[in-house]
Write a protein that binds this DNA or RNA. Sequence first.
DNA 1: GTCCAGGCATGCA
DNA 2: TGCATGCATGGA
Length: 272
Amino acid sequence: MDVKFIQGDVVLENVKCLDLDLTLDCGQAFRWEKQRDGSWSGVAKGVFLNIIKNGDTVILKNTTKENYENIWRGYFDFDRDYVEICNRLKQDSLLAPTVDRYYGIRILNQDSWEALCTFVISQQNNIKRIKGIIDRLCRAYGDEVQGGYYTFPTAQRLSSLSVEDFEALGTGYRAKYLERLAKDVAGGKIDFEKIKALPLEDARKELLNIYGVGIKVANCALLFGFGFYDAFPVDVWMKRVMEYYPNGLPECFKGIEGIAQQYLFHWARNNL
DNA sequence: GTCCAGGCATGCA
DNA sequence: TGCATGCATGGA
């Protein structure tokens, strides 16, 4: 992959195994919007981005070199060899056709706080409604960084809200979880950087101590917001998929269980 | 009207 | 340890 900085844009050439449509709308992030020109707009880590892919060329419009290096390079996982990963996953005969069918799904490295909050909201919920809740949350308590695009509110900002304030966003019974989560994070009870540095099992234990966080939400947060590619979230869709793996996960998933999971999850939602 | 969604806390055995 | 139950909301 070649990186060029051309007239205020960041241009990446020869990008392999990246499908923006699949990656930005496969149930791992809920805030990206597709534009009429086929590009995607969104906000991550407090910064707005419009991104488009033509052939093997990706253009991050109106982006500084600093933002590319500090945010987007890691967010889109540009340094990871997904071609090699997909080839490895295709050693599994069940996953092989799925990887071919949905080739280009990547894991986004989202902000830890946003991912944790997002997947607390996601529990016992559907993707359409999750998006609506998060959109209302950001519009109400985030900062507008571009017309109609808002940052995800900080834990400090949300720590002053009441349970009723969260309920007003349509979060339902999850409101009490969010209320306490915001206060605990703002108060320093939960240290994201410390958790990121732990082994998977220990990191998961830390997250499981949080009110409203169970095994599924913990694994999603670990995979999408803490850099644990070996986390393997199992929700109602993945439970159906697991019937195809009665003897457990195949050896070729090792270390990248989370990436395998995302292909299987997407396949399940579209075919089961 | 019933069922379901990227589940979890709680109570009880 | 494992299992049953209640839980908010909105779309199908």
